[in-house]
Design a protein around this nucleic acid. Structure first.
Length: 314
DNA sequence: ACCCAGGCGGGCG
DNA sequence: CGCCCGCATGGG
């Protein structure tokens, strides 16, 4: 295996830690080592190892390998390396709050992930917290994913399960993965995305039509549809509003007064326009850190944190 | 024991 | 449209 594929890509405004930790589906199937600043993640049946050093990204293809051309495309697409961050920051630094968020988390990128993976991750995210979302997704991957093997036929990881696989999962097994009341949403969404709607064929659609299609999926509402549009299809005008974004916006822009989702959407679109999605990510991450550290994810440490299946009686 | 989490579907006014 | 409710589950 002396033939490991390695590439180097020059970048600026790139910071691996916040990109990994900020609640994007990328992190649900990956491991980040903060000491070496190295990220190892799974994409399809490939394993990619990423190291960030100063002004460049060094990427390796581990175990299997589809070559440097695949790797270069994979990394620059996934981490949006062609985005002009200077321009985007200029455009969304509309006030002191945004300026401080950008300064604090400079280099945090939005990522683009497989549409089905993104859909499943965000269906699980509803009325849930980061730590549990990670645990549930990892349990599902572990239970339903296919083995990814190295050249010695030894399993080194598991792939993300397809919608077809998840459609035939039993609700009871999904409950044991910790999915809770979302188990039926997962099954229905998986069946729908297998039989009726091919998510990979929506990539050419524009945001409004894309969102409309996504909203047809049972268990996908306004917020999750925007998350999928943003992180599964890279639609930067999507502006997902979760409890953190809502709360933070009400505090920062409306003196703490309650606002409806619609009002906040209109406000965001007018303020940040075609880069609203980036604004959202910085508001979200800054907002979470403003609260006391109760929900801090502390993710990278997890050795094997299991979701504690615990089968209750009743 | 109570409250909350990257919400959604369903029902009602 | 806006509001209210129930929903599974683990952690603070």
């Amino acid at each position: 295996m002396t033939d490991m594929s390695t590439i180097t890509i020059p970048v600026n405004h790139f910071y691996l830690k916040d990109t990994f930790e900020s609640g994007q589906p990328l992190s649900f199937h990956a491991h980040y080592d903060k000491y070496s600043d190295t990220l190892t993640y799974i994409t399809g049946m490939e394993i990619v190892n990423l190291r960030f050093s100063g002004t460049r990204i060094v990427g390796n293809l581990v175990a299997a390998g589809s070559g440097t051309r695949f790797l270069s495309n994979e990394i620059s697409t996934r981490f949006r390396l062609n985005d002009d961050m200077e321009h985007i920051y200029d455009r969304i630094a509309t006030d002191d709050f945004m300026k401080s968020a950008i300064e604090k988390y400079d280099g945090m990128r939005l990522t683009i992930n497989d549409p089905w993976e993104t859909a499943l991750c965000f269906i699980i995210s509803q009325y849930n917290n980061m730590k549990r979302i990670r645990g549930i997704v990892k349990a599902i991957i572990n239970k339903y994913g296919d083995a990814i093997k190295d050249e010695n036929d030894k399993m080194v990881a598991k792939s993300f399960p397809t919608s077809a696989t998840m459609a035939s999962a039993s609700e009871r097994d999904l409950m044991e993965c910790g999915a809770g009341f979302r188990a039926k949403y997962i099954k229905e969404a998986a069946a729908y995305c297998t039989e009726t709607l091919d998510l990979d064929k929506l990539k050419s659609k524009k945001y409004p039509e894309l969102k409309e299609e996504l909203l047809e999926i049972k268990g996908v509402g306004d917020k999750v549809a925007d998350c999928i549009a943003l992180m599964g299809y890279g639609k930067l005008e999507a502006f997902p509003i979760d409890v953190w974004v809502k709360r933070t916006m009400e505090i920062e822009y409306f003196k703490g007064r309650k606002k409806t989702i619609n009002e906040l959407h209109r406000f965001a679109l007018k303020k940040w326009g075609e880069y609203a999605g980036y604004a959202q990510q910085y508001i979200f991450w800054q907002g979470m850190h403003m609260e006391d550290v109760t929900n801090s994810i502390e993710g990278p440490e997890d050795k094997q944190e299991k979701p504690a299946p615990k089968h209750k009686k009743k």
